[in-house]
């Protein structure tokens, strides 16, 4: 029983990170109907911004850690907005496949620019938050796990408030439902799209920092696997659906952790995709998604 709870806790903290990244995929899909494959590299850049900022603040302090987190989120928000502005916007109006392939190009560009700028060798992420282990019966909870879950939950609640309670959030939903009608009531769709990229990228940066806290070896290719899994999580929950992305992330992280702790641990990465295939066979629109036929 205690092993089960321990694994559940580990799984949820991994799943919370996947969820944060998945939210960015799903929000961008919501407003632009394409998958931003460069999103996983934004996650990586977030971890590296955290790495460099972490050297500027004293290690192991709460305020220092939060400062690093905020800095990385702001940095990545700017990166996401710039990528959309410079690369994706000129292609808007053309076939979606063009943007999709360009996104893969941006992803590779960021990976290999990362290797030049940061170096290809893995670096050790500094312990920016205070570290301690708490024991609850036989259960061991690390302070990092608490930070991961705490920060992820706080950010997801914040996102929910932005999307459902603010004017710009309502505009995001309106653009996602009908971009033409949104323009006709006076929404500047470019502003909403930039905002969406900024918001999604900030969440990916937070995901990058939290991931690096738990797996402190970071390198420019670190985004590939978590990015892919978060993409699966977004599809699993129903692409374009915000609660779906969070749910998909939690499911995927938990299942992966349980498989990792079993005799089938070699297959833990493959399982993510096996789940995806099964879910899509039974529910083509994902767990919380609504199936809408694409007009041709």
């Amino acid at each position: 029983m205690s092993e089960f709870l321990q694994q559940l806790l580990n799984g949820l903290s991994l799943g919370a990170i996947y969820a944060l990244i998945a939210l960015g995929y799903t929000m961008v899909y919501g407003v632009l109907r394409f998958i931003n494959f460069a999103h996983s590299e934004v996650f990586m850049v977030g971890a590296f911004i955290g790495y460099y900022l972490g050297k500027l603040v004293p290690e192991g302090t709460l305020w220092g850690g939060l400062l690093v987190l905020a800095g990385a989120m702001i940095g990545c928000a700017i990166l996401g907005i710039l990528v959309e502005r410079i690369v994706y916007r000129p292609l808007r109006g053309g076939p979606t496949i063009n943007v999709l392939i360009t996104a893969i190009g941006v992803s590779l560009l960021l990976q290999y620019t990362g290797q030049i700028v940061f170096g290809a060798a893995p670096r050790t992420f500094p312990p920016i938050f205070p570290a301690a282990n708490f024991h609850l019966g036989t259960l061991t909870i690390s302070s990092n796990q608490l930070f991961v879950i705490g920060v992820a939950v706080a950010l997801m609640i914040g996102l929910q408030l932005i999307v459902f309670k603010t004017k710009i959030g309502t505009a995001m939903r309106a653009v996602s439902l009908n971009p033409k009608a949104a323009q006709l009531v006076g929404v500047n769709n470019n502003v909403v799209i930039s905002f969406t990229f900024g918001l999604g990228s900030a969440l990916a940066a937070a995901g990058g920092i939290l991931y690096a806290l738990n797996y402190p070896s970071i390198d420019p290719l670190m985004g590939v696997m978590p990015g892919l899994k978060a993409f699966v999580a977004a599809i699993l929950g129903g692409i374009g659906n915000i609660p779906g992305a969070a749910l998909g992330g939690l499911i995927l992280g938990t299942v992966e952790t349980f498989i990792g702790g079993s005799q089938f641990s070699t297959y833990k990465d493959a399982i993510a995709f096996a789940i995806l295939i099964v879910i899509l066979l039974c529910k083509p629109a994902g767990l919380l998604g609504k199936f809408t036929a694409e007009k041709v």
């Binding site: 309502t170 939903r173 309106a174 439902l177 009908n178 033409k180 006076g186």
Partner: peptide
């Protein structure tokens, strides 16, 4: 739209997943 010229499009184009209240408040976006 900001200059006072408003277009009610063919097929209505209401924001289907938003409530009536949210649709109306979107109308006053500016």
């Amino acid at each position: 739209v900001a200059r006072g010229l408003s277009h009610v499009p063919e097929g209505r184009m209401v924001f289907s997943n938003l409530t009536v209240e949210e649709n109306l408040s979107m109308g006053a976006y500016l």
